[in-house]
Structures are given as structure tokens and as C-alpha cells.
Design a protein around this nucleic acid. Structure first.
Length: 285
DNA sequence: TACCAGGAGATCC
DNA sequence: GGATCTCATGGT
């Protein structure tokens, strides 16, 4: 019997548009008024219905609690930044319902290795190709879908084949990281201090400071991890007068945004990239 | 057609 | 430790 979980939320608490368009996950696609994707081995469909956001998960073995954790639905985002400056306040208001997902560690690690010096449409295409190539297939809604490959499955794909699938020069990094990840206990890694986790993640080939912070934030629940790409550095410089390097962004973000700096980063990133009009009109960018 | 993309690694000094 | 180059390849 198929495992189905259905969750209803208000648009103020969860926005698939803001969440899936903020560059933290690459497996969700909009079609009409429905967002469709695969996560944790299940088909996920999200649509608005009578003023409510309806999340329907089909397949896999995850519970309602697992999915609430995945979408971070039980966290009150309105109390995370009690001392928010006016700029952050505008960013938070510009993307209501944006939530930082708690994705699967190995998927985030590989996804953001692929993201290096790459653009989002192509990242999505490569990840989709990897899933079709090596991910476990399952059937839902009368169609065949593919889970993200396990370390064993991805590690078995020849480097030459990874290049054919579009991975380019990242192919050896992906192959080596997948093979190293076999036997790695990511669940215990997630309970470490962020700095300790980052150094361990950066031991994987193709994982530097930025990719490690993305994996820590999106895959391990380290909400203080602060990925600093060119957009965020630009935002800190233009909006806050920050003059430092990406390596100095950690201390700055912790001082400026506190223990949830990673979530603040995601709102700032979304607003910068989406050229949100209300944000720009308010003097944000 | 150039330039860019949610950078990392190698090689310089 | 920091500056510089190269790495595939589709998007814009």
C-alpha cells in the first residue's frame, strides 16, 4: 500500500515559489499551479487550494514528522531575528513563506559540488540526469520517478559517463566524493559544531568553503552556516558597507545576523537574485 | 560573440 | 597567507 502524507499550511508560513526559487534545491519544477519534485525517495506535489498550501507526498517511507522537518514547518520564522536591521526586515518581508529546507546530506553535498562555477538551469539538468542514470526508480501517479542516487549508486557510475551526463570537469570530484561517502555516517556528522562539520566536509574532493557551507546549511541543519558567493558579498558590501573577503563573512554575519545567519543569507540571496521590486523600491538594492 | 554561472584546486610568490 | 589561472559547458 502506497505511503501518502498530506500537509496543509498557510501561504504566509510556506511559499513554494519563494522556497524553491531561492537556489537551495534543484529538483522542484513548476507546472501550472503545482510544484512537482522528488525528495527523500518520494514524489512531492504542492499546490494552492482555497487559500491553503497543500503538500502531498507519495511513496517512500517517511512520516509526517519527517516531512515537517524537511520543510522546516515547525519553526517560527517571525522570532528568529528580534534585532533585525531595516535592510533585513525588508528582505524578510519581501519573501514571506521562504523556508530553509532540511535536505538529505549526500544530495546537498553532490548538488553543490555541481553548482561550482555553474548556472542554475544547467545544475538542475545535470542533477536530473544523474538521478535518471543511477537513482532508484519508483512509481507514483502512474509515472516513473527517480530518487537521488545513494553514495554506492553514484560511486558506481564511471567518470567518463559522468562527463557524458554534463558534469564536465567536476566529474572526478563527484566520483571521488561519492566513493568516499560510502560508509560515511552523515547523521552523526550533523550533530557536530558547525566549524567542525565544515572542516570535515571540505575534506571531500570538490568541496571548498562555499560548497561546505551550502551543504551544512541546507543538508545538516547548521542554520548559522553562511554561504558567501559573489551575490552575497555584493549584498553585504552595497547594503552594509562590508569591505572584507568571503573568508571574513562568517564573523561579520554572526555579528550582524546572529545564530540564524544562514536563514538571513537565504532571504538576502533570494531578494538580490529575484530583483524583487518591493525590495528594490524600498531602497534594498 | 563574449561573458557569466550559488567555486575549487593547483601553482605561484 | 593572498593573487592568479584553469577547469567544461549551457545560459544569457
Amino acid at each position: 500500500m502506497e505511503n501518502i502524507v498530506e500537509i496543509r499550511e498557510s501561504p504566509e508560513r510556506f511559499s513554494p515559489q519563494h522556497t524553491f526559487s531561492s537556489g537551495q534545491t534543484f529538483r522542484f519544477y513548476p507546472e501550472g499551479n503545482t510544484w512537482t519534485g522528488v525528495a527523500m525517495g518520494a514524489l512531492v506535489r504542492i499546490r494552492e487550494e482555497n487559500g491553503q498550501i497543500v503538500l502531498k507526498m507519495q511513496g517512500g517511507s517517511r512520516t509526517r514528522e519527517d516531512w515537517r522537518a524537511y520543510f522546516d514547518l515547525d519553526r517560527d520564522y517571525t522570532v528568529l531575528f528580534p534585532d533585525a536591521d531595516p535592510i533585513l526586515q525588508r528582505a524578510l518581508a519581501a519573501a514571506p513563506g521562504l523556508r530553509v529546507l532540511r535536505q538529505e546530506p549526500f544530495e546537498t553535498l553532490i548538488s553543490f559540488i555541481i553548482s561550482a562555477n555553474n548556472n542554475i538551469p544547467r545544475i538542475r539538468g545535470i542533477i536530473r540526469a544523474l538521478c535518471r542514470e543511477a537513482g532508484t526508480p519508483f512509481t507514483a501517479d502512474g509515472e516513473t520517478w527517480h530518487a537521488f542516487p545513494s553514495p554506492e549508486q553514484l560511486g558506481a557510475v564511471p567518470e567518463k559517463r559522468l562527463r557524458e551526463l554534463g558534469c564536465g570537469y567536476r566529474a572526478p570530484y563527484i566520483a571521488a566524493t561519492a566513493q568516499l561517502a560510502v560508509g560515511t555516517d552523515f547523521s552523526s556528522a550533523g550533530r557536530r559544531e558547525t566549524a567542525d562539520l565544515l572542516s570535515r566536509l571540505q575534506a571531500f574532493p570538490g568541496v571548498g568553503p562555499k560548497v561546505a557551507r551550502c551543504a551544512a546549511l541546507f543538508g545538516f541543519g547548521c542554520l548559522d552556516a553562511f554561504p558567501a558567493d559573489v551575490w552575497i558579498i555584493r549584498a553585504l558590501r552595497e547594503l552594509y558597507g562590508f569591505e572584507g573577503s568571503p573568508a571574513q563573512a562568517d564573523a561579520f554575519s554572526r555579528r550582524k545576523f546572529g545564530p540564524y545567519a544562514g536563514i538571513a543569507q537565504q532571504y538576502l540571496y533570494y531578494c538580490m537574485r529575484s530583483r524583487n521590486h518591493s525590495f528594490a523600491a524600498a531602497g534594498g538594492v
